[in-house]
Amino acid sequence: MQVPAPVEYERALSVDDAIERLTRLGPEARLVAGGHSLLPMMKLRLARPECLIDINGLADLSFIRRDGNVLRIGAMTRHSELLASQVISEVAKIIPDAEAVIADPIVRNRGTVGGSMCQADPAEDLSAVFAALDAMVEIRGPRGTRVVSVNGFHTGPYSTVVEPDEILTEVSFVTQKNLGSAYEKVERRVGDWAIAAAGAVIALQDGKIQRVGIGLAAVGAPDFRASRAEAYLLGKDATPDLFDEAARMASAECNPNSDQRGPSAYKRHLVEVLTRRALDGALSNSKGKAN
């Protein structure tokens, strides 16, 4: 078996303690949560941290909480907990839609929301989900706590605004009545990363689209979203023709690479199909809530 290079190991006792250790140990220290992204990289020796700081004991980062009209998800929440949450499925169906197709049930028992966001894989489904939800990300570090938008959170493939001495603590988004959402993904096989995936969030007011988010995974969309398509939809009547056009726009504005999952033209095609399906699903979900 492939095995990691030698590494030191410490356990964080609290968020502050984790930050203190990161500060003390410097940029060669890495936080480890579920470990399902970091450990495979370490086994391949593509990642070689000098020290791992285990944050699995930080129970105060494991929560799913309604806070007025904001839904807060702690960074240590496991994928399986997100998938099983009644609150989440009522508020944002896009999350269980996506979680059901992230990796596999055993990996989901271990992998965490914060870990997935910080790994920042270009095909990360949760990145597209939280983009569609216009989520905010709470980051804590020696310079205090900051809350940033998911727009601009990613600075490139596998790279985010979280500094080496910081810890992502929470992802949150604004909920509202009638907020409908859905996620659509095509993969080569169950458990594989997406060939392409699209998520949509939609809310209507007086028949007009009052809120909309379209998230795209694995297709090189800036900030994992189709912002031109979103802008096009906002304030208009939700008609099939409108959705068709938005799906076409989403397809045009992403920038997929060809790889063994498929040629870029196919991925672009999928974005159109899946965006359209996600918008339909989101609208239907929203209407279900109105009734």
């Binding site: 190991y9 480890v32 470990g35 450990l39 791992l52 285990d54 399986s80 055993i106 990996v107 028992n109």
Partner: peptide, 12 residues
Amino acid sequence: LPVKSCTVLTAM
């Protein structure tokens, strides 16, 4: 909880 033990450190 079932987990994949090839991707968990003993220390954890």
